[in-house]
């Protein structure tokens, strides 16, 4: 099986999840700030060599405390995404290697919907858990 950007974007369209393309041709999803988390979460969705990857940042978000401790604690309590400290900021990251046969439902349910929800909740709960 091969996946490509168009296939994944088609799935996002079916889910009515808006995406835009950045200068590199990667998809960008923005989860709007709300009462639970007052920062937009910007998620880059990349598809390369059958790997579907997510890298998320929270705009203007500066957590209190030691970022390495926060990231490690998150990674101890949650399966995904992975919290990583890059350039003094916390990123949430996740990827799936999909070069073997999987159903469309697996990609949609487990590799898209679940991940997007998990990324948002990861930021919401980063300093709470």
């Amino acid at each position: 099986m091969t996946i490509d950007k168009k296939l994944i974007r088609d799935y996002f369209d079916e889910l009515r999840i808006s995406t835009r393309l950045d200068d590199d041709g990667d998809m960008v999803v923005v989860q709007a700030a709300d009462e639970d988390f007052p920062h937009d979460v910007i998620i880059f969705v990349m598809v390369n060599n059958n790997r579907l990857s997510y890298a998320a940042m929270a705009s203007g978000y500066q957590p209190q405390g030691d970022l390495y401790q926060l990231a490690n604690h998150h990674n101890c309590v949650r399966n995904l995404p992975v919290a990583v400290v890059r350039d003094g900021n916390i990123r949430m990251e996740c990827s799936f290697l999909l070069d073997e046969e999987v159903s469309k439902e697996y990609i949609v349910e487990n590799c898209i919907k679940m991940v997007l929800g998990s990324i948002w909740h990861a930021f919401v709960n980063l300093e709470k858990e």
Binding site: R51, N72, N75, N79, V85, E93, Y106, N110
Partner: peptide, 30 residues
Amino acid sequence: ANMRRNFPTAVMSKGELRMEYSFYISEDVS
């Protein structure tokens, strides 16, 4: 380690290193 690799996830638990990863598969896969 987590910056370098997609998986597994490196964690420090009670001062000790562990590598972890999980797959959630609720739909059909080969």
